[in-house]
Every structure is written in C-alpha cells, then in structure tokens.
C-alpha cells in the first residue's frame, strides 16, 4: 500500500495541487477553507511557486487570469460568498479560454450565511454563475482521497480543454481528516506545452489572450468554437459512481458529502432487505444524464438528496424525463441529515 497520511480535505487539496504542478496560488481568507491558504503559504514557495494573499477575492481571481495567460498552472480557493465575488473573473477566464482551478468549499447561504457544510452553490457552479454563455467543469469529491485525486484531474482537464475547472466541496470535507495516499509529484516542465501562452514573443508571432471581440461575428465564432469543446467534454468526461444499482427499486442520487452519507443509507437499507441503490455524480458538469436515464427505466423512484432546496434535483428530473417519480429530500442552512433521517425517507418509497 502507498504510504498514507492523515490530512484534512483542505490540506489534501492544497498538497495535491502542488503535486499536480500548480506553481501559483492566489487567495483571500474565508472559513471553512482557510487551511488551503495556510498550506499554500507554507509549502508552495518551497516548491518553487508563488503564493499571494490578495487584497480581495476579485484581485485573487484576476491574478489567476494573469498567471494562466503566462502558461503557469494556477489555483484559487474560497467559500460560497467569496466565490460569488470571483464570478466576474471566472467569466473572463472562460471568455479568454484560460485554464484555472477554482476550489469552492461550500458553506451555508445565501448571503453571509454561516460556516457549516452546504450544497447551495450547485446552480452557481454548474449553470454559469457569471455572465455569458460559458461552462465550467465541476468535480465533486466525497472523500479526502477523492478530493486529492480530483484536484489533479481538474488541472489536467482544465489545461486540455482550456476551460476553468471547479472543485465543488463543502465545509465538512474541507475540515475532516482521513488517511490519504497522495498522488506523485509532477514536474511542471514535463506537462503538455501551451503554445498559446504569453511567454515572450522572441522568434515567433505574438500570441493574443483576451475575453474581448468587438465584432459580433468574431465573438459568435469564438463562442461556437468554445461550445464545440463543451460538447466534446460532455461526450467524453462524464464521471459517476454506482453502488448496488443492479436490482435497486429505489435509486438515490447524491453527490459530495451527501453522496457518502447516502452510501451508509444504502448499506443500512440493504441490511433491512430494502433494494436501494445509489448513483453518485462525480462530475456535476458534465452531468451524468445518460446513466440516470437508463436506471430510471428500471426503478420505482429516483430520490435526490442534497444539502440544498433542490438544485441538482433539476438535472435529475431532466435526466429522468418522467420515466418514474422523482421525489426530493434536502436540508439547508448548514444542517446535515444523519443516515437514519434519510433512511426514514427511503422507507416511505421502498
């Protein structure tokens, strides 16, 4: 077995970013993700990178824009209210086709809300958030191990498609500790080249990076090409996990922290002879519409469970398209249901 370390989700995501070749980090403090900043401040300079605690979230995301344009792997992190502030910059990154990894350790909202775990930023993450016709790749880890792995994947996908990628975690995952086998270190010099980057035009034609095209025909063309890439992502990069779905009568759909709690629900339900399964989306965009649709034809109900009023629920219903009932169970404001509370809801359906 690879040697495991005991780390919080926040620390593991920060270390995984350094190991993925991230060499610039820009952030502004907010609970419950401050350990990412702390970790980066302590360890990124030693890896030859640059850490800057910016004067605001807006400054931090725009520093990412600059670093990314220069071809460097770059990351920022925040929690819900701070991500709202970053949205203008995320839209600009999307408009300039710049890779960047953004970590959102979600907390209770709206507004200042509180610092407890929540999933109320699903719409913001998966439906744009900022202005304009753009998409962000959204990855939702449910364990500290998976958080570390998905950070590496986020950098790779973001570079490959030149689309910003977001890790959508929550306060519980950020604060809890689990053993994690960290991915190996990657030398930034060995990463795929970025011929579009602004690295100095000596001996070549200058590159141009901007999220600006005054002529409508030009902007339409840029958007069409970008959406071509979005279609490619939707066709190739959908990821999900299934648990005990083969003979399930009730299918749970849950992601992140709620996804792992749902695993315990499935285990307890099976222990009582109830045929319950789980589909846990790992990519929230692109969303696993096809596998949910396929399972919906075989089950009696698809129960969406979220730490929100029902945001992913809309995508689940788009996937099911009326093939079976699609009830919803959710908690808000930082309240996290126990496995037994969800199980009681499952029993009403099974």
């Amino acid at each position: 077995m690879t040697e495991r370390q005991l780390m919080t989700g926040n620390e593991a995501m920060a270390e995984a970013a350094i190991r993925a070749g991230c060499r610039t980090y820009f952030g502004y403090p907010i609970t419950p993700q401050n350990e990412i900043l702390e970790y980066m401040a302590a360890h990124l300079p030693a890896a030859g990178g640059a850490f800057v605690q910016a004067e605001s979230e807006v400054a931090a995301i725009n520093m990412c824009y600059g670093a990314s344009a220069a071809g460097v792997r770059t990351m920022t992190s925040s929690s819900s209210p701070g991500i709202s502030l970053k949205l203008e910059g995320i839209s600009y990154l999307a408009g300039a086709d710049l890779p960047c990894v953004i970590v959102n350790v979600m907390r209770g909202g709206p507004g200042l809300g509180n610092i407890a775990p929540a999933q109320g930023d699903y719409f913001q993450a998966t439906k744009g958030g900022g202005h304009g016709d753009y998409r962000v790749i959204v990855l939702a880890p449910s364990t500290v191990q998976e958080a570390a792995e998905l950070v590496g994947l986020a950098f790779d996908l973001s570079d490959r498609y030149r689309v910003p990628a977001m890790i959508l975690a929550d306060g519980m995952l950020g604060q809890m500790m689990e053993p994690v086998a960290l991915p190996p270190h990657r030398d930034p010099a060995t990463l795929p080249p970025k011929p579009w980057a602004l690295t100095g035009a000596k001996g070549r034609e200058p590159n141009y990076v901007a999220s600006f095209a005054l002529d409508p025909k030009d902007l339409r063309e840029l958007n069409l090409r970008r959406h071509e890439r979005y279609r490619e992502i939707a066709a190739r990069e959908v990821r999900w996990e299934e648990v005990a779905t083969e003979d399930a009568h009730v299918l749970l759909v849950a992601y992140g922290t709620m996804g792992r709690i749902a695993k315990t629900v499935v285990r307890r339900a099976r222990g009582e002879g109830l045929k319950v399964g789980l589909l846990r989306p790992i990519t929230l965009w692109p969303f696993p519409y096809a596998p949910i649709r396929e399972l919906a034809a075989r089950v009696r109900a698809v129960l969406t469970v979220e730490l929100s009023a029902g945001q992913m629920w809309e995508d689940v219903r788009l996937a099911v398209e009326g093939r079976c009932p699609t009830p919803f169970y959710g908690e808000m404001g930082g309240v996290v249901p126990t496995p037994d509370e969800v199980l009681a809801e499952v029993k009403r359906l099974a």
Partner: peptide, 23 residues
C-alpha cells in the same frame, strides 16, 4: 481524537475524524 485516528491509520484501518468547527 486525532491521535486515535492516526493510530487507526497506522494499523491499516479506515478512519474519519470530523471536528465541530463552528465559531
């Protein structure tokens, strides 16, 4: 709790340590 979690990990077991992290 953290020391117990570390010991469990060193024994090759799975473990989660979840703190109350309110104010």
């Amino acid at each position: 709790g953290k020391i117990l979690a570390r010991a469990a990990m060193e024994e090759g077991l799975e473990v989660t340590w979840l703190p109350s992290y309110g104010p």
